[in-house]
Design a protein around this nucleic acid. Structure first.
Length: 706
DNA sequence: AACCCATCTGCG
DNA sequence: GCAGATGGGTTC
């Protein structure tokens, strides 16, 4: 062979280790290459599909591609796609997932045989494998990281439980019902399409409704529509309380809760009942015993046989943002999944997120919402008690609970429970316009201003520019003021304002979250997101510290404030039954008006338009690269994609005592998101292959970018 | 983490 | 001219 020495190193190594290795052995010298230890020789290999392509369960990004192993004949029947295996990888034994079995290896070297099959269960279905790969690609992460989110930890004892398949009850046949959808334009048509086996996509704004036609019932009816078409369904909710509400509604709609030995029911897939229960539920879905999965965010990856419908409820809830790498979001994972598995997609809530609004305005999904007449008929009367409104009350107007609010609570208590919503404790420093209180944004890149500098000069949190000659884009004001966000006062304190009345408290930090309170007069003080339901609806709701909710400069404060208010307001009886909602405090004007008019779509739509002009997501794609300075610079430097803007780096306050982390924000047009994610993943692979030092996190579409 | 390989460095 | 150190890259 001519030019032998010019062969690429891998080829040279291979031929040395192969037949020519012995020929090169010279007298007096050791063997040129020692034999590699774990060759397939001596092992009888499978005759059919003797090659397994596997995903190695190790974190480094440069290992995120399939590795090929020889399949011993003894494992041929077990080492099927989706099955966990142990393989020799370099010097170590590692876990891996079989992705596929093929006839020919692509790798042009000797293959090492699989060591053993771990449990023989195909825990990663082909659909989930594809979804996990797409998720890793979308968020610049690795397949191994996503599979760690998707596949619950193995629980051998649960696995051993024999599914009593012969004793299974006959599959329940739910009756069709669309009552909870009757008042939503496009709702009944969506259900019909789902039953017919189609893949419609809908963004749904829910109306408040009494038990039987509330949002859990609406979701249950959509699931029934999928079941009537002989397909499975997946419902993902922010927390376990919501999961139980949907399971109850499903049972009422004729889809019973799955229990071992039954078939066709709905399984509860959450982490809160422990690893055994979680794995049992996972296996019930995997084995096709349960055809409906209802769970929290990790269940977006649950195996559901013949998936016909995915649902994400209240996609604005921060609990839908996965806190572990690569930080995927339930709504987006389910959107990907609906495309990959050609199933129906439903995202909904009382509010409308900007991201969901974008799905509608980009033509990806249809809108399902009630018309104004229905909205008025089903919602409470909303009043905003701003200081202007309360001017004649004198100094008391600025009180945390102004007299008119106190009077309203007193009055409505005669009719039933009254809900008082208080913001969660905590402080976030931010800068707002001193005149109109709009969040202050950078004049150059429209990032949010903050007070990072010790001398109090406002600087942009993204590009780091000083806001020297800042002017408010809303009102033209030139003064800035810092806003302190949060409430340190306890909920109990409020209860003292109503002596003789039962006060119930619901909140994480205040002794626990109540799921439900009885239909009797009581003041129910709840932190945001911890509001209990009550059978006949609240007589009134008072939303305190409204200014706190819209202060701050994080992206999407306004839709988020509205979402929290609507979450409480939706629990109140309609105006025709005396239901009243009082928003207390000087919140931002547009958010306040959107609540008064009960118009979440209008707010989301305006916010989306504004984000378009300012170059903020979801009109663009952002990636936050944060960590030690050298690491951030090195990773960012290798990212070269069209139309890339590099904002920063800026130091991140509150990280590292001596050398604070820095953050760089990468911005590309929306269409460039895929390319940006791929380039980032490639740069991270180089970083890990070269063992570049420091710490680093990369987050696409960060939720809490300030 | 353990290794392989190529290149560099210090010393004769 | 050569041993040992160093850095970059692979592991199927």
């Amino acid at each position: 062979m001519p030019g032998e020495s010019a062969l690429p190193p891998t080829d040279a190594r291979r031929s040395d280790a192969g037949a020519r290795g012995e020929q090169l052995t010279l007298e007096g010298l050791p063997t040129v290459r020692r034999r590699r230890r774990t060759r397939a020789e001596g092992v009888v290999l499978a005759t059919e599909l003797p090659v397994a392509r596997v995903c190695i369960d190790l974190p480094p990004p440069h290992l995120d591609h399939p590795f090929e192993y020889a399949v011993p004949a003894a494992l041929a029947d077990q080492a099927l796609p989706g099955v966990r295996v142990k393989v020799r990888f370099g010097r170590q034994d590692v876990d891996a997932y079989v992705l596929e079995r093929v006839t020919e290896a692509e790798h042009d070297g000797e293959l090492v045989p699989l060591r053993r099959v771990v449990d023989g269960l195909p825990v990663v279905t082909p659909q989930v494998a594809r979804l996990a790969r797409a998720t890793a690609d979308r968020w610049a992460g690795t397949l191994a990281d996503v599979l760690r989110l998707a596949v619950p930890p193995r629980h051998a004892r649960v696995e051993g439980e024999v599914p009593s398949s012969d004793e299974r009850a006959p599959e329940p046949v739910p009756a069709p019902a669309a009552s909870a959808w009757a008042d939503h334009r496009g709702g009944p048509a969506f259900l019909t399409h789902v039953t017919a086996g189609g893949a419609p996509r809908a963004v749904w704004t829910a109306l408040p409704g009494e038990p039987g036609r509330g949002w859990p019932d609406a979701i249950a009816q959509a699931v029934v529509a999928a079941r009537l078409g002989a397909r499975g369904a997946l419902v993902v909710l922010p927390d376990a309380r919501d999961v139980d509400r949907v399971l109850a509604a499903l049972a009422a709609a004729g889809v019973p809760r799955w229990t071992p030995g039954t078939s066709g029911g709905a399984v509860r897939l959450t982490a809160d009942e422990g690893p055994a229960a979680r794995y049992r539920a996972f296996l019930a879905a995997l084995r096709g015993h349960a055809s409906v999965v209802v769970g929290t965010r990790a269940s977006a990856f649950a195996p559901v046989a013949d998936l016909g419908l995915v649902v994400c409820w209240d996609d604005g809830d921060p609990l839908h943002a996965e806190p572990r790498a690569p930080y995927p979001h339930t709504r987006e994972v389910l959107a990907l999944r609906s495309e990959l598995e050609r199933c129906a997609f439903l995202v909904g809530g009382f509010a409308r997120t900007v991201e969901a609004q974008a799905l509608v305005e980009h033509g990806w999904a249809h809108e399902v919402a009630a018309d104004r007449r229905q909205v008025r008929a089903r919602t409470a009367r909303v009043r905003a008690l701003t200081t202007t409104e309360l001017a004649r009350e004198g100094p008391a107007a600025a009180a945390r609970l102004p007299t008119p609010a106190w009077r309203a609570i007193r009055e409505r208590l005669a009719d039933g429970p009254v809900l008082v919503q208080v913001p969660r404790a905590g402080y976030v420093p931010a800068v707002a316009c001193g005149r109109c209180r709009a969040a202050a944004r950078c004049g150059t890149c429209h990032g949010p201003l903050g007070l990072a500098k010790a001398d109090g000069t406002p600087t942009c949190g993204w590009c780091g520019r000083l806001a020297a000659d800042w002017r408010c884009t809303e009102c033209g004001g030139a003064t800035l003021r810092s806003v302190r966000i949060g409430s340190q006062r306890t909920a109990e304190e409020l209860g003292r304002a109503f002596p003789g009345i039962t006060v119930r408290v619901s909140g994480r930090a205040t002794g626990g979250v109540l799921a439900e309170v009885p239909d009797r007069p009581a003041v129910v003080v709840a932190t945001v997101g911890a509001e209990p339901v009550t059978p006949a609806g609240y007589a009134a709701a008072v939303l305190l510290d409204a200014a706190v909710a819209t202060a701050g400069s994080s992206l999407g404060v306004l839709p988020d404030a509205l979402r929290r208010w609507l979450g409480a307001a939706a629990l109140v009886r309609p105006a025709s039954d005396g239901g009243v909602v009082l928003l207390v405090g000087d919140a931002e004007e547009r958010a306040t008006q959107a609540l008064v008019r009960w118009d979440p779509v209008g707010l989301a739509s305006r916010e989306l338009a504004e984000r378009g002009t300012l170059g903020l997501p979801p009109a663009v794609r952002l990636a936050a690269v944060q960590g030690s300075r050298e690491a951030v610079l090195a990773v960012v430097e290798r990212v070269t994609v069209p139309d890339l803007e590099v904002l920063g780096p800026v130091p991140v306050p509150g990280t590292g005592d001596l050398t604070p982390d820095v953050r760089t924000v990468l911005r590309v047009p929306r269409a460039g998101g895929t390319v940006l994610a791929r380039a980032l993943a490639a740069s991270l692979a180089v970083r890990s292959a070269r063992r570049e030092g420091g710490t680093l996190t990369v987050q696409l579409d960060p939720q809490d970018l300030r």
